[in-house]
Amino acid sequence: MGMRLIARFTARCGRLLLVLAAVAVAAFSLIQASPIDPVDAYLGPQVAQVSPEQRTLIAERWGFDDPAAVQFVKWARNLANGELGWSHVYNAPVSDIIASRFRASLSLLAIAWLGSTLLGFALGVIAGSHEGSLADRLIRLYSYTLASTPIFWLAIAVLLLFSVGLGWTPVCCASPPGMLRADVDWLTRLHHLLLPALTLSLLGVAQIALHTRARMLELMRSDIALYALAQGATRRDIAWRHGARHACLPALTLALASLGELFGGSILVEQVFAYPGLGQATVEAGLRSDIPLLLAIALFTTLFVSLGNAFADLLYRWVDPRLREEVRP
């Protein structure tokens, strides 16, 4: 048992490393193929004051004359040593930026993820157990509408309504302007977090609700439900005792597999709400050609999404006993 667990864990880590390596190669190649010039990006507006000779000197010193493969190996070796590079946009080590930005994004992502999963699941179970009812039709209408709404548009709409129009929530940022983050109490932080988190959580609701509903419909038409009905169970009893158990498999998979989408959504939402998270840093790094930061974020999100998928696999085994390996003495 112990040996098998270790073997499975090692295999999983090996696969994760392979994925990371593949993403590293792909991201590096894309940057190489892009028109970004690292020296120009580093110099910024000062580029006009630098002579061509000096530019060549910088490029030579930083090894930009070397073939791409050599550059990649150098970067990968630094990466393996935990050296992610220096971000010229924030003028700080990339690892520090990612750590602090991710900490800010984490609460946003966590609230949005939990909110969308729980709300989507509950709506799906309710809709699926009362097929054709008013509640079902409303939930379906809501899901289809939501699924076809662009997230940035939704973010702007709620910002206009709640922050500008009604004034219930702050217009921007993670803390009031001019205050140090350390001086802000958690209630104020939550107040700033509320609207972006709500908007982001709406992103995943529709998908999870519709998939949960589909699985519920299947179950409510199965022998299991028919037999439970014969035992005198009510529809609600069947929906929550049997239905929720069966429907949580697709819901979990979807919730954990859509971490990538969630992160993508957070880029847009953080931009609209000017929330200083990892998503906003991604946009900054992209617009201002901060290559080390951009590459590190690509690798970090890969890690984030892969861990989510691994976690889904683990939970699957826990929910469905048929997926557990039989260990017979």
């Binding site: 022998d223 035992q231 049997h242 069966h246 469905d320 006993p321």
Partner: peptide, 18 residues
């Protein structure tokens, strides 16, 4: 149902596998 009338179903698929 269930209290005075009970059914033994035809298929063992009526058992919830989870």
């Amino acid at each position: 149902r269930g209290k005075c009338l009970a059914l033994i179903p035809q298929s063992i698929a009526a058992l919830d596998p989870l």
